[in-house]
Write a protein that binds this DNA or RNA. Structure first.
Lengths: 234, 234
DNA sequence: AAGTCAATATTTGCATGCAAAATAGATATT
DNA sequence: AATATCTATTTTGCATGCAAATATTGACTT
């Protein structure tokens, strides 16, 4: 069961995995003592992990004990929009201060690479690269505060830019939402380069909303998508 | 030294206090063992507090040990703008969905109360009420995700809506920035009531920027303002 | 059946012990 | 003087023990 060298990491990663994989359901009460026994480590690193995951927003710590948080559909949408908002602010800032040559080149390279991947229909690889692209936009803002906070918003398993809950269930929709997304990416880089800060703000914010439709589709399909394990049905 | 009933709270609050008050300087390395001895509690609750404060952004946890984080002036501005952005999103949402009668009434009551306080020149009380008002705007959004995240942005001692670093040093400026702020508040409530979401977004975002000037003034005055203790000079 | 309360069993909060890691100090080497 | 090497000291990571807090059971009452 032990997954990494030290107990602290074991506790944090394994616990997070269990939560976002759906192995632990929203509402489940967590017993530090039981978890410790289960992972064959002591309770000390477990408590620490519980505290961290509470700060991350995956657990709710009422007095005496932690409970796995569950999210309403509206909260899922809000978390996605929040990510869009923060990314939009970063893109806006990048346009305002002007992206460095390096940052701009990196964005263009990523665009090209993603184009290549789309031609090969290698959709799995796109998922990863998509997140890389989003992070590259954040970095173009050169604002540690914005970068930090936007990346924090990625932690909820359904909110990050690489969350495609329909990947398994609806291949067509997945493919077409990727095509739309890639179109957005191109416009976003273009707007940053042209220093159109207001425009890139709108573009980026809207770009995140592509995910709304996907979440809805996945929920209708009622397939047990791990990324939506924490979504409570109405 | 022990300040509250249980050691966990003692550790967290006391440690946070020491950081925000400037008692601990940016860059200082924290020794759990020393802190524990100093607060007459064991190292366990100290470690937990360190972890929490790292998640809060006040500490940086490099391998083996925590260091008090310090912020550049630009980072202070960015943190203020981030708060403004999140509050703006909440106000926008409130306008979009329409604030409930209760929320709107609460906002108006707070406006009146603040007016009264300004007439009495009771500026200290204004500080608290100002934050209450901002929180009331957040709640009008009825979005737990937004509320949570915006309030999180208040934690940095210079970023929250009740941070007036010039309160002590420049009474005139303090007073006039409050008057401007109160003007904004009125427009913000008006815009929420009129469901003018785009307008209230701009208003709220700009409202946070009042704080920029105050920070600059306080830094120029070079008085040791505790709220700016973590700001590293260029 | 539902509520009350005592008795019991779990579970947590927190101190502490100890091995391992990190840091600081001292001494030698270039 | 700067660098490297070894040693002594401090500090951390984590397990564990124990009292206090919490949850659970079940008998008893309404």
């Amino acid at each position: 069961m032990r997954m990494s060298v030290n107990a602290r990491q074991t506790a944090l990663y394994e616990l997070r995995r269990r939560i976002i994989s759906g192995e632990l359901q929203g509402g489940d009460k967590l017993r530090a003592s039981h978890l410790a026994e289960d992972m064959v480590i002591s309770r000390t690193p477990i408590s620490e992990a519980l505290l961290k995951l509470e700060a991350e927003g995956l657990l709710i710590g009422d007095k005496s004990g932690f409970t796995v948080r569950s999210f309403s559909v509206q909260e899922v949408f809000d978390a996605i929009d929040l990510r869009g908002l923060l990314e939009a602010a970063a893109a806006e800032r990048a346009a305002e201060i002007g992206a460095t040559e390096d940052h701009l080149q990196r964005l263009k390279d990523l665009l090209d690479e993603m184009d290549g991947i789309l031609e090969d229909k290698n959709l799995d690889a796109y998922e990863t690269l998509n997140e890389t692209f989003h992070v590259a936009v954040l970095h173009a803002s050169r604002s540690p505060i914005l970068i930090e906070e936007a990346m924090r918003s990625y932690r909820l398993p359904f909110a990050g830019p690489s969350a495609f809950p329909i990947k398994e269930t609806d291949h067509n929709r997945f493919h077409s939402s990727i095509l739309t997304g890639q179109e957005h990416h191109r416009l976003i880089v273009e707007a940053i380069e042209a220093r159109q800060s207001a425009r890139v703000f709108s573009l980026m914010r809207e770009h995140a909303r592509v995910a709304h439709g996907n979440v809805e589709a996945a929920l209708n399909a009622r397939h047990a998508t791990p990324q939506l394990a924490l979504v409570k049905d109405a």
